[in-house]
Simulated assay, not measured.
Amino acid sequence: MSDKLIDAANAVRARAYAPYSDFQVGAALRSVEGHVHVGCNVENVAYPEGTCAEAGAIAAMIAAGDTRIAEIAVIANASAPVPPCGGCRQKIAEFAAGDVVVTMATTSGATLSMTVAQLLPGRFDAGHMDVAGGAT
């Protein structure tokens, strides 16, 4: 299924809004329900205010009513496969089990696949928010 996701990610990557960096990124994920959701990076002149492709695909998934990621692909116009940034790794981990495969690809055909657990070992999750004796 990752070839279909890479194709979908590449199609949306071409629509990325990246006038400042010219670093276009596309992401496509398949939810456990079998639906494909896509996102692309959207830059902003106030640089930290941009949105990553992975975050856009996750937002599209949630907006469509799906809640869990079964597989995700990310593609960039780079010389080597680019992993999701730290914030996106945490976002992916919020909606994906540790064994979910993340395929990173380039527009020239290189790929690298890793699991969510490999990308984000020791991930922070809701269990870390439990406090002894209840809320503080």
Results as ranks from 00 to 15, higher is better:
16 A>Y: 03
42 V>A: 13
93 A>E: 00
132 A>E: 14
31 S>G: 03
120 L>D: 03
110 A>C: 08
73 A>I: 09
18 A>D: 07
65 G>M: 04
51 T>N: 13
28 A>N: 02
89 R>Y: 06
113 S>Y: 06
60 A>V: 06
9 A>C: 08
40 C>A: 15
1 M>A: 15
10 N>K: 14
108 S>G: 11
117 A>C: 02
118 Q>P: 00
13 R>E: 00
31 S>A: 05
61 M>K: 01
74 V>C: 15
86 G>Q: 12
27 A>K: 07
108 S>A: 14
122 G>I: 02
100 V>G: 02
12 V>F: 06
115 T>K: 09
42 V>G: 07
28 A>M: 07
66 D>G: 02
55 A>L: 09
6 I>R: 06
110 A>W: 07
96 A>L: 01
95 F>C: 01
47 Y>L: 10
129 M>W: 05
83 P>G: 12
85 C>V: 06
128 H>G: 08
94 E>A: 03
5 L>H: 01
101 V>S: 15
108 S>E: 15
16 A>L: 08
72 I>M: 14
44 N>P: 03
75 I>Q: 07
119 L>I: 00
112 L>M: 08
67 T>Q: 14
126 A>Q: 09
102 V>W: 08
132 A>D: 04
126 A>T: 10
79 S>H: 08
69 I>L: 02
62 I>P: 01
67 T>F: 03
64 A>V: 05
38 V>C: 15
30 R>Q: 15
127 G>R: 07
52 C>F: 14
111 T>D: 11
11 A>L: 05
77 N>R: 11
28 A>C: 08
135 A>T: 13
123 R>H: 11
85 C>P: 11
38 V>A: 13
117 A>G: 04
112 L>R: 12
125 D>C: 01
32 V>R: 10
123 R>E: 09
114 M>S: 12
103 T>N: 11
44 N>Q: 15
41 N>C: 09
6 I>N: 08
130 D>G: 01
99 D>M: 06
45 V>N: 10
126 A>Y: 12
37 H>L: 05
35 H>Y: 08
32 V>G: 02
130 D>C: 03
73 A>M: 09
28 A>I: 02
103 T>Y: 01
131 V>H: 01
68 R>N: 09
52 C>W: 11
60 A>Q: 13
126 A>N: 09
81 P>G: 04
79 S>L: 07
113 S>R: 13
53 A>P: 02
1 M>D: 11
58 I>T: 02
119 L>G: 00
32 V>L: 14
8 A>T: 04
82 V>I: 15
107 T>F: 02
8 A>C: 05
127 G>F: 00
23 F>L: 13
68 R>Y: 01
60 A>S: 08
89 R>Q: 15
51 T>S: 12
47 Y>I: 12
71 E>G: 05
72 I>A: 10
51 T>H: 13
92 I>W: 03
42 V>R: 11
104 M>Y: 13
117 A>Q: 06
128 H>C: 11
104 M>D: 11
9 A>Q: 03
86 G>H: 06
74 V>G: 04
91 K>N: 09
117 A>H: 08
40 C>R: 15
36 V>H: 05
78 A>N: 15
43 E>W: 09
125 D>K: 04
92 I>Y: 00
90 Q>F: 07
106 T>H: 06
3 D>G: 06
84 P>D: 14
129 M>C: 13
130 D>K: 12
116 V>L: 11
